[in-house]
Design a protein around this nucleic acid. Sequence first.
DNA 1: ACATGATCATGC
DNA 2: GCATGATCATGT
Length: 223
Amino acid sequence: MKKSLHSPNSIEELMLRAESMAGLTLGQLANFHEIQIPKDLKRHKGWVGQLIELELGALAGSKPEQDFAHLGIELKTIPVSALGKVLETTYVTVAPLTNIQGLTWEESVVCHKLQQILWIPVQGDRDIPLSLRQIGSPILWRPSAEESAQLKQDWEEIMEFISMGQVDKVTARHGEVLQLRPKAANSQVLTDSIGRDGKLTQTNPRGFYLKTQFTQRILSQLL
DNA sequence: ACATGATCATGC
DNA sequence: GCATGATCATGT
């Protein structure tokens, strides 16, 4: 994947570039950037996101920062069906499993990443060839007071389990809008976590994800 | 049909 | 291993 050269200097510029993508297919965008189009996403799960980053001038890399840190904006592509239905949960960030004493929602990485998101809907039905899938209109979102409250409540409940050494008791069913799920190369991967009596143990790494119904409401409500 | 738990690629 | 980008694929 090529590195983008220009990053937008303002939210207005970013939104104009995002709006100008609407209606284009992934094939058109890939051809423009001279990027190879995979047969499907089975072994290229991040391909769509990377392509959109390239077009919008996001600063690539594995930094734990927002995509447009200078604008305070996180970029997320979101697969939707032909009927506009959200098809996948949205990964937010890795969950901290140690050194979390005193950590508050307001200080959390989840809260920071969700301050402002630029959603780019992309057709995600698997029966549409990747190159023919169309990009939708961008949606700039900031959580409402109600949404923030929901997110905070879920986060605090989940973090309580983690801090009590009960991370293995948390399933994706916990949380109304925010959930905790495995986030690793596979289920054998281990990382430090809080165990019995506050001692360190190891467990499969977890990530925070937004549930589809929550994301669905964001997209529907703003369309 | 759908969400949960598992997984894939890449850079450092 | 951790952080980025996510979707896959099976169980319910």
